[in-house]
Amino acid sequence: MLSSILSGLSIGSVLLLVALGLTVIYGSMGIINMAHGELVMLGAYVTVFSERFLRLPFLLCLPLAFGVTAGLGLLIERVVVRRLYGRLLDTLLATWGIGIILQQVIRLSFGPELQNVSVPGFLTGEYRIGEVSLQAYRLAIFLVALALFAIALLILYRTDFGTQLRAVTQNPQISACNGINVNQIRSYTFALGSGLAGVAGVMVSGFNAVSPTMGTNYVVDSFIVVVVGGVSSLVGTVASSALLGSVNSVVAWMSNDVLAKVVLLGLAIAVIRFFPKGLFTIQSR
């Protein structure tokens, strides 16, 4: 039982990790970023690249991946997304196109084969708590997910940028009247969300094989988390990751992994239909 809870927490923290960037973008800009999975994939490839050519320590890949994907996110917003505000379906398609382009660029430069990343020694061991063994890497993912969540909260609620971002989310016109550079805020938001995806990619590369097509799974997972959690708050994302993680581990424990995934997707569809604002949204007005 305890191991089931731990596995749920572990799955939940991976979900939180990959979905956080998407929540920031979708929650505050209302944009469905289908390239999100590919940004995660890119973060993973930053690790591969640094291991092969730069020989940086694993942990240094985290800020490096953040920088690379955030920069790319900034570019994507400036060149593509900005031109499509108000055309939601086209934004979805355009970001999907970007995802395809990123996938092909990586496939052409790194090859289609699976890549493995070696993880530093202190992250490979196991800890024992009573009966249950806990992989150090799982613990690390949990901690990184929490840390990123804390950083995102800090940025949103304790910085000028965060205040302006929340203002733009509520009402872009009035924000502009009050002297907020709406376009700039949106660019930075997109960059922040993309950067978070990159960091998630680095962490994911430590326990899953890295391949050009790995992003597709993550984009679907992230959407489930965001949809179930509701768009308005980061806290909803955490709650929904925890819920979905435990549902996944319970169903997988009772039957199999495939059915667990099917149940998650079915749950997401039901939530979209019956609770369009998500399960963890505080009722306002």
Binding site: V80, L93, A94, G97, I100
Partner: peptide
Amino acid sequence: WRLLLGILFLLVVM
């Protein structure tokens, strides 16, 4: 080709 198709798709959508 797939790369070009992705770019073409993006341009058409935009």
